[in-house]
Amino acid sequence: MNKVTRNWMINGTPHRVETPPLRRLLDVLREDLRLTGTKEGCGEGECGACTVMVDDEVVLACLLPAGQVPDGAEITTVEGLEKTPGGRLLQEAYAEKGAAQCGICIPGMIVSSYALLRRGPLQAPDAIRTAHAGNICRCTGYKKIIAAVEWAAERWPETVTPTE
């Protein structure tokens, strides 16, 4: 089978990946690299549990063929958040506010939060709801997740905005 080679910076660490180009980024992360923090909830881009960042964009790893992620791309998954001040702040916010219950949606949810907050201060009043509309949570009713993101937004470290 034809494979492509990619050099990616995943969570700040260089990785050289050889993969069939149509293999889902999700499978490369979970199976090849054993980064199992990123979850599969639906496999069709509806639930957001597989949300990761490729460069500055939020993407769904279950929909993205690995071959479409260019050489040199920076990939951020839930496992990479604790390496950044903003990511650690969000983890603290989620834990403190009771935003995680069963926890299965959290890896995707918190990456969406991180991508939102690192863009700078929130502008629109419904910015948080809109930014997480693609992340389904069946446990919390979302209220505590919104509270966690608000809490983190108020404390977001200026020095790490917009890029850490």
Binding site: E79, L81, L90, Q91, Y94, G98, A100, I106
Partner: peptide, 22 residues
């Protein structure tokens, strides 16, 4: 309102669900 004992694992993506077990 004590913090969940499993919160740290869950917000770090470290909780091991069935499909995560190797």
């Amino acid at each position: 309102g004590i913090r969940r004992l499993d919160a740290a694992d869950k917000v770090r993506g470290q909780a091991q669900y069935a499909d995560d077990l190797h």
